[in-house]
Design a binder for these strands. Structure first.
Length: 420
RNA sequence: GCGGGGGUCGCCUAGCCUGGUAGGGCGUGGGAUUGCUAAUCCCAUGUCCGUAAGGACCCGUGGGUUCGAAUCCCACUCCCCGCGCCA
């Protein structure tokens, strides 16, 4: 949600954003709804004022035992007027809220303008893709050879894009989680394991309406949705709160499984565990002062880089273009890890600054002193590790000639082995 | 799941029975006073509309009754206590 003042004073800025994102949006309709809404507030306020005055008068006269029948009549007619006006007000307010909740976030000036991922900008590269002197396997071959994944039975039991992890891959998965939690814990993050199901209000605070359709699973008959990432549950954790400024920034390490419908992804990455409906993730989430959020954004990225350097995965950092940017994000870096089996860099991390977009929806504010005006804070999120994709990268890059997998050094003490 | 108690403006609390402008304390900021500190007193301290003056709203949420609801009625929700069930 954007500051409604922008609709009035600077709608061009919003228009430019919509154009850059190539998003169709009935902005004029929203501006009109906002105007109507404010007009109705003024009109209903006037009637309420009158009603309050009469009510006061009645109370006073009653004390003096004066007849108030006439005043009560006036009150009745004012209440009737109000009821009628309120009906239209509810409708206007509804359409305003609905529209304003589906308006995407502003875009930071450093974001390249363009459609799709062609316009994404490479910021840097780290590490060198490994060179193999044998015919390499992709992660699907590797997991089959070592009995690490059972896709057929998962398809039978749950459907496509599900998987059973088996044997050492179960341990690798746990090791990545454990290492990631230790890593962030050392950086004084607050560890938080979130609810995996959250209600609609909370979900709406973290994502934009259309994502409900494409990514979010709903529990039938309940006001509950499976989180697509712990970001959704951590963001809403402080909803409707006023945070004491001296506690900022709040840095959380969220850990949870992630559930995604992958509705628009038919045919893409159909095999293996690269694109699946369920995976585990350790996520960084920061509540920050507005003036510090861009520094926090860079900080998140540098922590991510440190992590993948320690795991020794070659990667590149991409700055997403306006067309590729998520609707709630003002600026996003992706970290694409080298995947030897696919001979390309693939996305494993997404690091975003959402400014006050989520905070407005969730009413998360802060202030330094209790006599001060409250302010919306900024929220940022970044993957630290999404286990399935990182495991794909590890398996493909660390494979050995005999079809086994070397374990990155930092993970060895967690998994208790040097090869799989 | 059953029974009982509760949710009040950042925090704590009064008001609810008996409907008529939500009061007090703490914290925080400003001011006054005082060698300094402390103490004391005064003012401010939620949201929305409005350039402002001002006004409206706010007592867990949503309905209802009423001229008028924090207050009465109904439903829901969360917390606490007891019972039941349970990994």
């Amino acid at each position: 949600m954007l500051d409604p003042k922008l609709l009035r004073d600077n709608s061009d800025k919003i228009r430019k954003m919509l154009e850059a994102r190539a998003v169709e949006f009935p902005l004029d309709q929203l501006i009109k709804a906002d105007e109507e809404r404010r007009d109705l507030i003024i009109r209903t306020d006037e009637i309420r004022k009158k009603r309050n005055e009469i009510a006061l008068e009645i109370a006073r006269k009653k004390k003096g035992n004066v007849d108030v029948a006439k005043l009560i009549e006036q009150m009745q007619s004012a209440s009737d007027d109000l009821r009628k006006l309120e009906e239209t007000q509810v409708k206007t307010e509804d359409s305003y809220t609905k529209l304003s909740l589906s308006l995407p976030n502003l875009i930071h000036e450093s974001v390249p303008i363009g459609r799709g991922d062609n316009a994404n900008k490479e910021i840097k590269k780290w590490g060198k893709p490994p060179i193999f002197n044998f015919k390499i396997r992709d992660h699907i071959d590797l997991t089959q050879g070592l009995d690490l994944v059972d896709l057929e039975r998962a398809a039978k039991v749950a459907g496509a894009r599900f998987y059973y992890l088996k044997n050492m891959l179960v341990k690798l998965n746990q090791s990545l989680i454990q290492y990631a939690l230790d890593f962030l814990s050392d950086k004084n993050y607050t560890l938080v394991q979130t609810p995996y199901l959250i209600n609609r209000r909370s979900m709406e605070g973290a994502i934009i309406a259309e994502d409900f359709e494409d990514v979010i699973y709903k529990v039938e008959g309940e006001d509950l949705y499976l989180i697509g990432t712990s970001e959704h549950a951590v963001a809403s954790m402080h909803s409707n709160e006023i945070i004491d400024g001296k506690n900022l920034p709040l840095r959380y390490a969220g850990v949870s499984p992630c559930f995604r419908k992958e509705a628009g992804a038919h045919g893409r990455d159909q095999k293996g565990i690269f694109r699946v409906h369920q995976f585990d993730k350790v996520e960084q989430f920061v509540f920050s002062r507005p003036e510090e959020s861009w520094n926090e954004h860079e900080r998140l990225l540098s922590i991510v880089e440190e992590f993948y350097q320690k795991i020794e995965l070659p990667y590149r950092i991409m700055l997403l273009s306006s067309g590729d940017l998520g609707k709630v994000s003002a600026k996003t870096y992706d970290l694409d890890a080298w995947m030897a089996g696919q001979n390309s860099y693939r996305e494993i991390v997404s690091c975003s600054n959402c400014l006050d977009f989520q905070a407005r929806r969730l009413k998360i504010r802060f202030r330094e002193r209790t006599d001060e005006q409250t302010q919306y804070l900024h929220t940022l999120n970044s993957t630290l590790v999404a286990t399935t994709r990182t495991m794909v990268a590890i398996m493909e890059n660390f494979q050995t000639k005999d079809g086994h997998i070397a374990v990155p050094k930092v993970l060895q003490k967690y998994i208790g082995a040097s090869t799989i």
